[in-house]
Design a protein around this nucleic acid. Sequence first.
DNA 1: CTGTTAGCGCATTCAC
DNA 2: GTGAATGCGCTAACAG
Lengths: 339, 339
Amino acid sequence: MTDGTSRAVTLSDVAEAAGVSISTASKALNDRNDVAASTKARVRAIAEQLSFTPNVMARGLLAGRTGTVGLLTSDLEGRFMIPILMGAEDAFGEGRVNVFLCDARGDAIREQHHLRELLSRRVDGIIVVGRQTDPRRSLGQSLPVPVVYAYAPSDDPRDVSLTPDNVAGGRLAVEHLIACGRTRIAHISGDPSFSAARDRLAGAQTALADAGLEMVGEPMFSEWTEHWGRDAGAMLLRQHPEIDAIFCGSDQIARGVLDIARDLDRIVPDDLAVIGYDNWELLAENSRPGLTSIDANLQQLGRRAAELVFAAIDGNERAAGEQPMPVRLVIRGSTIARR
Amino acid sequence: MTDGTSRAVTLSDVAEAAGVSISTASKALNDRNDVAASTKARVRAIAEQLSFTPNVMARGLLAGRTGTVGLLTSDLEGRFMIPILMGAEDAFGEGRVNVFLCDARGDAIREQHHLRELLSRRVDGIIVVGRQTDPRRSLGQSLPVPVVYAYAPSDDPRDVSLTPDNVAGGRLAVEHLIACGRTRIAHISGDPSFSAARDRLAGAQTALADAGLEMVGEPMFSEWTEHWGRDAGAMLLRQHPEIDAIFCGSDQIARGVLDIARDLDRIVPDDLAVIGYDNWELLAENSRPGLTSIDANLQQLGRRAAELVFAAIDGNERAAGEQPMPVRLVIRGSTIARR
DNA sequence: CTGTTAGCGCATTCAC
DNA sequence: GTGAATGCGCTAACAG
């Protein structure tokens, strides 16, 4: 463990060591031109030597800004927050902005608690990340800082929300299957209480209708798990052996379907095409064959959320409403045979 | 988006509204006894009404402490940081400590950059999270705040490092297989340049030797992937059909082995027991059968790291050296048939 | 070009 | 009990 005792060196330490006033030292370090080049160099050398790091809090007191953003999540265990966080970090980038990460664990009390903490710390803005695409309760309109909702939209249309476009994703998936020459397409998805499940189905239905096709069998809803994918896949392929493609509501479900297809001697993709959702690389790249999937571009979503927070902080741009974010298709071997 | 314009209300606002001085307001809100109960109540009511949140920066300026901790990770995409972060958050808990999350993306330059930022923000301590258990370069001994290394230890023994005990994990895994009556045990693992791979093997060898057994075939090293698990499993089972158990260096590898075992008509666990490593629930709980695995208790590791940072901050306790953290066995159907 | 002064928001003496 | 004064570390406006 490093030495936790030595007091942090302050600007006045540097000034004293350099034999100048505090304000001169400040100017030198902030590269103002109203200071002699020689003293500037000297002060900087001293600062370097003393490994001086300016106290951002003190600076923030003056500026009224802290250069911090709060990320309030209820999905620390899940996988959606991570890419969003990465995108946000990218956007904040070298902009000297740091992120406070708070995990509410899906608990409203804890969320309120963390919200107060973030406001106490005078974050310049807040990004709220949910774990489903269903609307969540708004933090309210009376906060002193801008708020952007990511993945899970706010239930208040006055808020800005960025959500992946699940309808477009469903459409994209089925259009791809049709483009691959498939016509007898079925759908297995997760919990129907999730708008994600319903929206993806809606998109799929649109694509089918546009092509003059009908879905084979009823869409099957239950859990977002491999187990369900296996069970549903087995039922479906037994009841409707003519099926030549299955659109799955998640990569986990798709993995289950791939698994059971092998048991039933259905060759993927020749005999049966399978497409997943989320493009969870751990699952999609390691299956046999690789799993074609829909990617929600979460990193880009996070980046955009950060940009919106920024815009609201220093500009006056005040967007509002739910903005569906584009998704993309990632093709692997489960829909097109690689040669 | 919420109103980003309304200036945050300050203590002087509250004082003015309550018709008292700033210092009295301060005392009232901090529950000091040298203030009349009536005024105390009044000030608090006003503060509540104005939704006053104290500016932690200003307070921190005085106190010399910020109540923040930096989490410097190089594993934002990976899975190790998340449970560690959760454990740390638990430990910090209601302690009014917040976490700055910085992702260095495995880049030393970026890490240095983030380190400076954290020091600028006067974090009270830093937790460094790596993505492998191999030693990483120390941040140095001259930092003004305590540092604890989690998962990846520091290469400087003067630092405190918490790493999962991979040797114990390897031993535990093989002891379990032996307890299940297995005697012809093989090993498939990942990249041998990882100390995790070597340590787990060492532990396994110990357990075998203690039981008077020898490993079947050579340990197989390559990647931490399902693909490798399938390939290695196929080779192994073909060359050594007598194998009755495989200890895998990761859950991904184990999933591959389970997959190929099914292809080769080996019944798990009756005919072949399989054990993984990491207890990645996504993989372990959804396989057929469920995957027995070694869990590194990362959440507890994170909690402990936070506790050590705390101890160093306000106590004088200054631990040092690499502390191996206990692991545990999670039994599922891949080693013991569930009835 | 440099130094002095003031003040960001708050907690803490110390007078009254 | 209460309030005026001081200072945390820093930057901005001025005066020299």
